[in-house]
Design a protein around this nucleic acid. Structure first.
Lengths: 221, 221
DNA sequence: CGCGACTTTGAAGTAAATCAATGGGCGTGG
DNA sequence: CCACGCCCATTGATTTACTTCAAAGTCGCG
C-alpha cells in the first residue's frame, strides 16, 4: 500500500491502521463496482487497471466523468459528506482494487490535520479538473471540443509539436467529451486530413499546435 | 461579517483577523470581477446581490457553472492550489462584495484544523454539485435537461406537486443547462401545454411531478 | 487462422442553434 | 399619471451539425 501514489504523504503507522480495515479484490472487465445513488461505505483505490466514473444516460449510453488510473482513488467527497455517489464506477479492464473502510479512513483524517490538508488539496484539484472538463464539453462544435481536449496535453504554451497517448478507448474518450464515438472518429479524420494531427491508433501526433489552437478558444491554456 | 452564512463555524477572533485583510466594494450590474485565467489573490464572499460563474465561449455566449447568492463564496480551490481561475465571475446585478486577502485566509486555515475540515466539506459539496450539473447537461434532449433541473427541487421523493422559484434570469438558467434561452423557453412552453407545469414569470408550479419525472432518467433523485 | 471487440465510414433523420421579429413588463422621465 | 424605451422573454422560420442506424474494415488474441 505504501508504494501507491495515493499514500504519498501518509505516515507508515497511519497506513498500517488503514490496512487493518482494507480489502483487496479483482474486478473483471466491464464489472460495475458502484451504481449511481449508492451509499459508499469505503474508499476505493486502484492498484492496477483502469476504471471509468460515468453517469448513465436514459436508454444505453453514458457520460464519462473521469478515467481513474493506478494509484488513484475516488469517492472521498461522498465519504466526507455521507452523500450518495453521483456516478457509476465501471472497470474498463481487469482491475486490482483496494477498498478502505470508511470509518478508518475518516478517523485517520480527523486525527491528523495534515492529512485533512492533503485531502483538501486533492478534492480541490478534482473540482478544478471537473470544471475544466465542463468547459470542454460546453464548446459548441465537436471540432472545438476535440481541439480543447488535445490542447490540454500541450507540454508548454507555444509548443508547436507534441504527442498524446490516449489513455483509454476512443469510445470512452468520446463519451468524456460528450460526443459519440462516430463523431469523435470523424473529427480526428478531419484534423488528420488537414494535416493538423497524425493519428496512429491511440497515439496522436499534434503536428501544428498553432492551427489546432485556432479551432478552440484562446483561453484553452 | 460574522452574520454571513459563510462564517458560521468561525470563531470571532478568526473573523476579526480576516477582517483586517478584507475590503468591501460594490459591483455594478454586468461588471466582470474575474476573468478566466486570472490568478486570485483573494477570496470573494458575496454580501448581497448575485453573480454568475461562467465559462466564456468563442464568439458571444457563455456556459454558466454556478449562480452565487448572498452569504456564499467562491475561489477557495484556486487559492488552495494557487491555480488560475477556470471561470469568469460576472455580477448578474448590483453586488456588495467582500474580498479577503489570500494570505490571511490560508493562514487561518492552517492554524485551525477544524476550519480546514469545514473547508474540505465545502469544497466536497461543490464538487458533488458540479458533478450533478454535469449529469444534467449530459442528458441528450432539452426536455430531459429541463426535467432533471426542475426535479432536483422536489422537496421530497414521491412529492407530486411543488413550486420552483427560478433564482436567476431564464437566460442564465438556460446557459447553466447548456441550452439557448430560446430552447429553454420552448421546452417550458411545451411542458405547460401538456399540463405538467404552470409557468408564471420566474415561478414554476410543477403540477405533475410523476409525469415530469418520466421525461428524465430514474436516478434524477 | 478465425473470432470478437473496437473503430471507421456511409447515408439519412432530427433536434437544437441561429437569425429575426414581436410581445410584455418595468422603471424612468415627461 | 401616462408614455416611452430598454431589457427580457417568446414565437416563428431556417439551417446545420450531430446522432442514429447500418455495414464494412482493423486489430489483437486465443
Amino acid at each position: 500500500m505504501a508504494r501507491l501514489a495515493y499514500f504519498q504523504g501518509w505516515r507508515t503507522d497511519q497506513i498500517a491502521r488503514l490496512a487493518a480495515g482494507a480489502k483487496q479484490y479483482i474486478l473483471v472487465k466491464n464489472e460495475r463496482l458502484i451504481r449511481k445513488g449508492d451509499l459508499l461505505d469505503s474508499l476505493s483505490v486502484l492498484v492496477s487497471g483502469q476504471l471509468r466514473l460515468c453517469i448513465p444516460l436514459p436508454g444505453e449510453g453514458e457520460r464519462v466523468i473521469s478515467l481513474v488510473g493506478p494509484g488513484e482513488s475516488f469517492g472521498e467527497s461522498c465519504l466526507i459528506l455521507s452523500e450518495a455517489c453521483p456516478f457509476d464506477a465501471v472497470a474498463s479492464r481487469q482491475c486490482h482494487m483496494l477498498r478502505i473502510d470508511k470509518r478508518s479512513y475518516l478517523r485517520e483524517l480527523r486525527l491528523d490535520p495534515s492529512l485533512t490538508e492533503n485531502t483538501l488539496q486533492l478534492v480541490s484539484r478534482r473540482l478544478l479538473e471537473t470544471l475544466r472538463d465542463t468547459g470542454i464539453c460546453a464548446q459548441r462544435s465537436s471540432v472545438q471540443r476535440v481541439s480543447c481536449y488535445l490542447m490540454q496535453f500541450r507540454p508548454e504554451p507555444e509548443c508547436a509539436d507534441f504527442q498524446v497517448r490516449l489513455q483509454a478507448l476512443k469510445r470512452d474518450i468520446a463519451a468524456k467529451l460528450g460526443l459519440t464515438q462516430e463523431t469523435f472518429s470523424r473529427v480526428l479524420g478531419l484534423l488528420s486530413q488537414q494535416g493538423v494531427i497524425h493519428v496512429d491508433g491511440s497515439l496522436i501526433h499534434v503536428a501544428d499546435a498553432r492551427k489546432l489552437a485556432s479551432f478552440s478558444p484562446a483561453d484553452c491554456r
